[in-house]
């Protein structure tokens, strides 16, 4: 049996990640369409934005149900056909809104942190 205990990380970090990763997926899709495996690797390799690669799929399914992304199947050179994800118009609107809120949020947190510990 595989024992995979989620890494010991504070709850707030998991929540922060949860709250932002969906929009990071939208951002990744804003330039080009991508397939699931590619997205999962990108998010877990570079940024560690997902706890594990598999958790990206329920997230993608949710984005699709909410009409923020849409999918098309394409044949791949090797292996099974791939499901490609593409940003919808609604997805673009949601991303733009997030970017605005995120910057304001980030600036506010930074400001408070800097005031609290003067360097």
């Amino acid at each position: 049996m595989l024992r995979m205990v989620p890494g010991d990380e504070p709850v707030w970090l998991a929540q922060l990640r949860r709250g932002s990763v969906e929009h990071c997926v939208l951002a990744l899709l804003s330039k080009e369409e991508r397939y699931g495996f590619e997205l999962a690797r990108t998010l877990s390799d570079d940024s560690r934005l997902v706890a594990s690669e598999g958790t990206i799929y329920p997230l993608l399914a949710r984005l699709r149900r909410n009409g923020l992304v849409e999918t098309t199947w394409r044949e791949s050179a090797q292996g099974p056909p791939r499901r490609y994800y593409r940003l919808t118009e609604a997805g673009g609107v949601a991303l733009a809104a997030f970017v605005g809120h995120w910057r304001a949020f980030r600036d506010a947190v930074d400001r408070i942190l800097e005031e609290a510990q003067p360097s």
């Binding site: 595989l2 598999g54 958790t55 799929y57 329920p58």
Partner: peptide, 19 residues
């Protein structure tokens, strides 16, 4: 393959994400 599945993640964790 075990290492690979570990990267994919714990089924419970994926299920939790799926609600």
């Amino acid at each position: 393959v075990r290492a690979l599945l570990e990267r994919v993640g714990n089924p419970e964790e994926i299920a939790a994400e799926a609600g």
